[in-house]
Simulated assay, not measured.
Amino acid sequence: MKKLNIAYIGFGKSTNRYHIPYVKSRDNMRIGRIYARTLGKNLIAQAELEATGTIFTTDVADIIDDETIDLVVVVTPANTHFALVKQLLLAGKNVMVDKPAVEKLSEMEELIDIAKMKNCFFMPFQNRRFDSDFLTVEHILKTGYLGRIIDLEVHMDHFRPDETIYQASKINGAFYGHGVHLVDQMIALFGKPEKVSYDIRATRNPQSHVDDHFEVGLFYADNMKATIQATEMALVSYPKWLIQGTNGSYIKYNMDQQENDLKSGIMPSARGFGEDVPQDFGKLTYFNQSGDRIEKFMPAIVGDYGRIYDNVFDVLVNGAEKVVTDAQMLAVIELLENGFG
């Protein structure tokens, strides 16, 4: 059986929480090399991987020069992505990069062009395509329970008061950081919108130069509107999803449980990983074909961030199509960049 030999650039929280646990749970993948700017910061995790044959390095060239590497995954600060991915693609490496992939549409266009020229795989790690709540919404929309969609709201809310005055690039703000997930989900569901309205602000400390709050309206055909919103100042969160259609409504409060389980040390291979408890099920209200009003709680489709790795494997080994297309990658970055004029 073909095993995908993966190298990571970056060995911080994101690599150890959102990537490595899913790769470890798959028999058709192995972690060949890991670049870390400084070794020894996570000695236990490093030792566990070294025991299975993973080689650690402080030199990116070691990964570039290793011809056995099938895929390089870049999990570094967002403002380093463009230069690193460009270097790797020019060296002929297949690359998946954490999100946001880049800051500018022109950068995304350049990377896509290089990938095509070098015949390399290139895709952002849009793991929220495989959130349980998103997969459930996708299913509900496809089944037609709600009829024609009129309004959709999706939130990513936290309560993190912080009076610090931040001064950094916009790629470090909430719209690029959280909005990249929600924009990508809307692009996946409905495609590129016809019109977009933006409300992007710094609310925790109005003197800050980095946004922490956004409400963005995406307008589609037939007067349908999707609103994506995130804030760091919601002590009581909004519903995660609120959808109104011509035949019904759907409301769900809590988000996917994978992240909470991972933070608790529960791994993807564990029984019940990422599953919603019944009190967190979304409520679907609609009229059936007999005109009866139906109310039922929908169990969430279990999410799995590792499915994006499954897609990479299928693309590289079996010639499948990328789950995040080049057109979608471009549309996401264009919408993010346009939010700042």
Score class of each variant (00 low, 15 high):
residue 171 I to Q: 02
residue 171 I to H: 05
residue 172 N to E: 15
residue 173 G to V: 04
residue 173 G to C: 07
residue 173 G to M: 02
residue 173 G to D: 15
residue 174 A to N: 06
residue 175 F to T: 02
residue 176 Y to G: 04
residue 176 Y to C: 04
residue 177 G to F: 01
residue 177 G to H: 03
residue 179 G to P: 00
residue 179 G to K: 00
residue 180 V to A: 07
residue 180 V to P: 00
residue 180 V to S: 13
residue 181 H to P: 03
residue 183 V to Y: 09
residue 184 D to F: 13
residue 184 D to S: 13
residue 186 M to A: 10
residue 186 M to P: 03
residue 187 I to V: 15
residue 188 A to W: 08
residue 190 F to E: 02
residue 192 K to N: 11
residue 194 E to S: 06
residue 194 E to L: 04
residue 194 E to W: 00
residue 195 K to E: 08
residue 195 K to S: 06
residue 196 V to F: 02
residue 197 S to G: 11
residue 198 Y to I: 11
residue 202 A to Y: 05
residue 203 T to Y: 06
residue 203 T to E: 06
residue 204 R to F: 09
residue 204 R to C: 09
residue 207 Q to L: 11
residue 207 Q to C: 12
residue 209 H to P: 00
residue 210 V to E: 01
residue 210 V to A: 04
residue 211 D to Y: 03
residue 212 D to R: 01
residue 213 H to D: 13
residue 214 F to D: 01
residue 215 E to Q: 10
residue 215 E to P: 01
residue 218 L to P: 02
residue 218 L to D: 01
residue 221 A to N: 08
residue 222 D to K: 06
residue 223 N to D: 07
residue 223 N to L: 08
residue 223 N to K: 07
residue 224 M to Q: 09
residue 224 M to C: 07
residue 225 K to N: 13
residue 225 K to Y: 03
residue 225 K to C: 08
residue 227 T to C: 09
residue 227 T to Y: 05
residue 227 T to V: 12
residue 229 Q to W: 11
residue 229 Q to Y: 14
residue 230 A to D: 01
residue 230 A to P: 00
residue 231 T to R: 05
residue 231 T to N: 05
residue 232 E to H: 08
residue 232 E to M: 15
residue 232 E to F: 06
residue 233 M to E: 11
residue 233 M to A: 09
residue 234 A to M: 14
residue 235 L to S: 12
residue 235 L to C: 10
residue 236 V to R: 15
residue 238 Y to D: 14
residue 239 P to M: 11
residue 241 W to K: 08
residue 242 L to D: 10
residue 242 L to S: 15
residue 242 L to P: 00
residue 243 I to P: 00
residue 244 Q to F: 11
residue 244 Q to P: 00
residue 247 N to M: 06
residue 247 N to A: 10
residue 250 Y to L: 13
residue 251 I to K: 15
residue 252 K to C: 08
residue 252 K to Y: 07
residue 253 Y to R: 14
residue 254 N to T: 14
residue 256 D to R: 07
residue 256 D to Y: 01
residue 256 D to F: 00
residue 256 D to I: 00
residue 256 D to V: 03
residue 257 Q to E: 11
residue 259 E to W: 07
residue 260 N to H: 15
residue 260 N to D: 10
residue 261 D to G: 03
residue 261 D to V: 05
residue 262 L to P: 02
residue 262 L to V: 13
residue 263 K to M: 11
residue 264 S to F: 05
residue 268 P to E: 11
residue 268 P to L: 13
residue 269 S to E: 14
residue 269 S to Y: 09
residue 271 R to W: 11
residue 272 G to Q: 10
residue 272 G to D: 15
residue 273 F to I: 15
residue 273 F to M: 09
residue 273 F to V: 11
residue 274 G to E: 08
residue 274 G to N: 03
residue 276 D to F: 14
residue 276 D to G: 03
residue 277 V to C: 06
residue 278 P to D: 13
residue 278 P to K: 09
residue 279 Q to F: 13
residue 280 D to T: 07
residue 281 F to W: 13
residue 281 F to M: 10
residue 281 F to D: 14
residue 282 G to E: 03
residue 283 K to S: 12
residue 284 L to S: 05
residue 285 T to A: 12
residue 285 T to H: 12
residue 286 Y to C: 04
residue 287 F to N: 12
residue 288 N to A: 14
residue 289 Q to L: 09
residue 290 S to Q: 12
residue 291 G to Q: 12
residue 291 G to N: 07
residue 293 R to D: 04
residue 293 R to F: 12
residue 293 R to V: 14
residue 294 I to E: 02
